[in-house]
Simulated scan of single mutants.
Amino acid sequence: MEYKIDQEEILTTRAKVKKGSYALVPPLGPVTNRIPEMVSCSVYILAAKELGADFVQYLVYAEPGCGTNQVFAGEEGIEVFVFVLEGNVKLSCGKNTYEAQAHDYLSAPPGVGVEFINHSEKTVKLLLQTRRYIFLDGVEAPPVLFGKGDQVKPEKCDGKDNNVIRELIPDKLSYDIQMSIITFYPGASHTFLECHFQEHGLYCLEGSASYMLSDTWTLIKKDDFLWVGAFIPHGCYCAGNKPFSYLYSKVVNRTPAL
């Protein structure tokens, strides 16, 4: 998939990047990358160590009949999380295979990797996040996890009725990552501006928000990606008359390294 560009306009961008601190990556900005495990797909890299992140975030478009040609992210110690943004796709992890649709997700244990193929007649849009799993003495790595985000029960977030969270990953020590869908309804906001040691990856699923990044308020829209580095103040207000919803990640259940 390619975004259309009006060549008569002066070149501008909504991107805001402060390496090592934060980044707003809008849909128009990233360029396609040739990834050996999925050469037939259009792949955009939204975050990587070159930015300052401890994970890699991929946005992938797979046309009908396209997908992986070998296991992706199967290296020792690497875990991968897949979230279906649009379309229907077959996901595989080890001996497990799933027919997935929008907002379904798969979490692969370290060293197993994933495969996918688009058997439908429409383009499939995926988010993939890879990172190095943090092993914990006496605790086994988690099993393969497949779920449906829209069927996860929403819970109050920050004690507010107009701010809800759907936890996609079980709250168990074996998991070192939290993946959630957070929704702010019109008029909702964070209770306070957060400032903590975990990084965040945030992909906007719908709506818009005024989002604080460090000391600057920035408008966030559907399909924008945010990377928030350690100890960067951040928080948002839902903007407009539609809910603002995003997929969110952070490291959990682990002692900070020295």
Rank of each mutant, 00 (worst) to 15 (best):
M1W: 10
I5L: 10
D6T: 00
D6Y: 00
Q7D: 02
E8F: 14
V17D: 00
K18R: 12
K18E: 15
K19I: 11
K19W: 03
V25S: 06
V25F: 06
V31L: 09
V31H: 12
T32G: 12
T32Q: 07
V39M: 02
S42H: 11
V43N: 04
V43I: 13
I45K: 11
A47F: 08
A48G: 06
K49Q: 11
E50S: 04
L51S: 05
L51Y: 09
A53Q: 03
Q57W: 04
Y58R: 14
Y58D: 00
P64V: 02
P64L: 02
G65M: 05
T68M: 06
Q70A: 04
A73K: 11
G77H: 10
I78Q: 02
V80N: 05
F81Y: 11
F83K: 05
L85F: 09
E86Q: 14
G87Y: 12
V89W: 14
S92H: 10
G94T: 08
N96E: 14
A102I: 03
H103K: 09
D104Q: 11
L106I: 04
S107D: 09
P110L: 05
P110F: 08
V112D: 01
G113H: 05
V114R: 07
F116Y: 15
H119D: 14
K125C: 07
L127W: 03
L127P: 01
Q129W: 02
Y133G: 01
D137M: 08
E140A: 15
E140T: 10
V144Y: 06
V144S: 06
D150M: 15
D150K: 15
Q151T: 09
Q151C: 09
K153M: 12
P154N: 02
V164Q: 07
R166P: 03
R166T: 08
L168W: 04
D171T: 11
S174F: 10
Q178K: 14
M179H: 12
I181H: 03
P186C: 01
G187H: 03
G187D: 03
S189H: 11
S189E: 08
T191G: 15
F192S: 13
F192C: 06
E194T: 07
Q198F: 13
H200T: 03
G201C: 12
L202D: 13
C204R: 00
L205N: 05
G207Q: 09
A209F: 03
S210R: 15
Y211H: 13
Y211C: 12
S214D: 15
S214C: 10
S214F: 15
T216E: 15
T216S: 11
L219R: 15
D224E: 00
D224H: 06
G229R: 09
F231V: 01
I232A: 01
C236L: 08
C238Q: 15
K242D: 08
Y248G: 02
Y248M: 09
S249Y: 12
V251K: 14
N253H: 15
N253I: 01
A257E: 14
L258G: 14
L258V: 15
